[in-house]
Amino acid sequence: MAILIDRNSKILIQGITGREASMVTKHTLDYGSPVIAGVTPGKGGTDVHGVPVYDTVKEAMNNHEINTAVVYVPPAFVYDAVVEALDNNIKFVFIATENVPQKDVIKFLYLAKQKGARVVGPNSVGIISPGERVKVGAIGGDNVERCFISGHVGVISRSGGMTAETSWMVKRAGYGISTSVSIGGDPLIGSPPVDLLKLFEADPDTHAVVTFSEPGTTFEEDMADFVKAGGFTKPLISFVAGQFTENLPEGTVFGHAGAIISGGAGKPSQKVKRLKEAGMLVADEFDDIITLLQKALS
């Protein structure tokens, strides 16, 4: 078991013929993931690494069973691609693209909610469930096992790079991954951490979760409230980066567009305080994740 993606995922890649999408398709197939079809308008009838390409999602759906859409189109076309997937009743949409206009994101997230579909991203490097040998996005590149081995720890991080590094820390601690999720670096994303904690709570194969957090948003405060309310009962370990940004003037973005302290909200120190109050295990140094995880799972 895992969350979001598993052996039953049937993946459609929108924008599959692009340079990056084509490379990611190859890595995804090499890993063993079920990539069923691709869509690029005007390229129907061709194939990418053996994956058939269609002009429309509808056409792909007529020929295959599909339940997961992976969006790799340029920012100006993301809105249409997501809505096309939603209107064809695909219930899980993953978006890799960065710099998608906020207005478009708000609109397709609103539609997804109405249709009962789940969205991860935009600006996510990927999701991986190693026990199922399924991944979407560039996550893990061509050397997946370096960071992601099968196990029972879930990982949540906005940063794609830190999704890999945190999963590698889990491996160093002697454990493996059930599912690692890069939720995306933008201020508006489809699935904030609490949504994923709900899934990890319900997944019997996940025994603990590690999160990598950054300044900005209320993600950590929401996690603290969720844990306090009894929504998540497994060991939960967090590290909050970016303490130095508190000593700089407010309203400045460091790193991801979502990483901004404003109006006194989003400070790492406040997040750490709230997480600790909720009884979560907070790593003072990133390397402490190893010992905290070992203690929690022994």
């Binding site: 940063s159 990598f212 303490q243 460091f254 991801h256």
Partner: peptide, 28 residues
């Protein structure tokens, strides 16, 4: 580099007693 990685590394340098002259972030 790395949107999250740079944040972590800057903190880590400061915590170790270092003084970074700039912040940077490369990736992609």
């Amino acid at each position: 580099g790395g949107g999250g990685g740079s944040l972590l590394l800057f903190d880590a340098l400061v915590n170790a007693g270092g003084s970074p002259a700039n912040y940077s972030e490369f990736g992609g």
